[in-house]
Amino acid sequence: MRHVVNNGKECTFGERRHGMAIVSRGFRGRPGDTHHKLPPGQYETTDFPVLSAGPTPRVDRDGWELTVRTETGARHSWNWAQLMALPSQTPTVDLHCVTKWSKFATEWQGVSLDVLLEDVETAAEFALVHSYGGYTTNLPLEDLLDGQAWIAYRHDGEDLAPEHGGPARLLVPHLYLWKSAKWVRGIQLLLEDEPGFWESAGYHDYGDPWREQRYQGD
């Protein structure tokens, strides 16, 4: 099913701005965005280039774990069977890589971060995402909520291949793809923003492709 929705920037997050609150935004069920429209400076590709900052981690599902840690140290974790037991969605989304390729209407299956963070109490406004292999990336917590982000484990009807981030990756398609951390293993909730791997080496802190936020200062 193809869902044509606008770009997600109209979402309001007022509820969360009022300090300590349960993160849950309810289950709005918007399963993704596809525009078939190129952000500035991008070109369309139909293949799926593999970009990697290091060796591809081979993560066994039996040993896989996803951990959310809050600013108070509270820890929530899911093993593979627990992740599979959660309700999933099948978003169809456009991907925009900062190296200038975009790929339209990619099909995924994964668990919405709204579901995973439903029972997590936090006053954090920022998230630092950690991957197997040591990669990190940061983004505002609100960009993980309201149907904008998933822990994705299937792509194009197949289990997610290791070179594309399998067994599971973050999928945050409204930001440049370096934010969609492959081989995700944890999300650290923080009161202060903390730059990740590329954000501390010149890339933009937020990375909105529609505003062409590639580098610091853009």
Binding site: L51, S52, A53, Y203
Partner: peptide, 11 residues
């Protein structure tokens, strides 16, 4: 050197 990333990464 991983050059197929958004930048160069030397390990």
């Amino acid at each position: 050197v991983y050059a197929q990333a958004p930048g160069y990464v030397g390990r």
